[in-house]
């Protein structure tokens, strides 16, 4: 006998009455489908939460590592890097065009750790800009400024008649008090410090912070007769203006 016939014979056995109810089966199937949808939705929600948590954790770990690297790199350097928006002034700036307002802020060299915020250290670069600004009212051409070892040197041409021209030079540097001094012709007390007139072409002003402002002129070119000079009163006014602005 063939296997198909055997199985068909076995499957043709009289079946007892079934206890299955189609309505109950259908309801059970629909409930099963509904709960299955709920489980899928819950699983999706849990998966989304887990993925979000994993992503946030990974981001936090990476950010923590980045901050840690920055801390390590900053502590390993001798001095902190300057802020990116502010550029340090070179030691010597030549050919600077004198303008009424500086094009950008200039920072000084790193100040000492002992300086307090209430009394900031003297800034040579800032003083150079201020001096150039003061001299721009009198000079005919660009002023040349240079900072070196905390000493400011400014040279500006004041113009002149014919082939002669006056060159004004100003220096701000630490120095001893100008009064009394044997070479001083006269001394006077101003609100910015003691001011001494040394000869016909130089004025010196010693400020309370220990710095001395020297303003002098010299003549260049060809001239006839006495050398052209700037009156002492104007030198004095320039020195006081520099003392005020720096």
């Amino acid at each position: 006998m063939d296997v198909r016939e055997l199985l068909r014979l076995a499957g043709s056995a009289p079946a007892p009455q079934t206890r299955l109810d189609p309505a109950e089966l259908y309801a059970a199937g629909r409930r099963r489908s509904w709960w299955r949808g709920q489980r899928l939705a819950l699983a999706g929600l849990v998966s989304a939460l887990v993925a979000t948590g994993v992503g946030a954790t990974a981001y936090a770990i990476s950010d923590h590592a980045r901050v840690r690297e920055e801390l390590v790199s900053s502590t390993s350097q001798a001095a902190p890097p300057p802020p990116p928006a502010v550029q340090p002034l070179p030691a010597t700036v030549e050919g600077r065009r004198v303008t009424a307002t500086p094009s950008r802020a200039v920072t000084a060299a790193p100040s000492s750790a002992k300086a307090t915020p209430a009394t900031p250290a003297w800034d040579c670069a800032t003083a150079a800009i201020a001096v150039a600004k003061v001299l721009s009212q009198r000079a005919e051409a660009a002023a040349q400024t240079s900072c070196q070892d905390g000493r400011l040197h400014v040279t500006a041409s004041l113009g002149g008649g014919g082939q002669a021209r006056l060159v004004l030079s100003a220096q701000i540097e630490p120095g001893p008090a100008v009064c009394p001094a044997p070479q001083a012709l006269s001394c006077e007390d101003t609100k910015y410090g003691q001011l001494a007139v040394s000869g016909a072409a130089e004025v010196r002003l010693s400020r309370p912070d220990g710095r001395v402002i020297t303003v002098a002129t010299r003549a260049e070119g060809l001239w006839a007769g006495p050398a052209p000079v700037l009156p002492v009163a104007e030198l004095r006014a320039i020195a006081l203006a520099l003392a005020e602005k720096t």
């Binding site: 007892p16 079934t18 089966l25 309801a27 059970a28 199937g29 629909r30 099963r32």
Partner: peptide, 20 residues
């Protein structure tokens, strides 16, 4: 076994109803 056969048939029909 007819009883187990009913159980299996019930399982099949419930799954069919769920995907009806």
């Amino acid at each position: 076994d007819w009883h187990r056969a009913d159980d299996l048939a019930q399982t099949a029909f419930v799954r069919l109803a769920g995907a009806w």
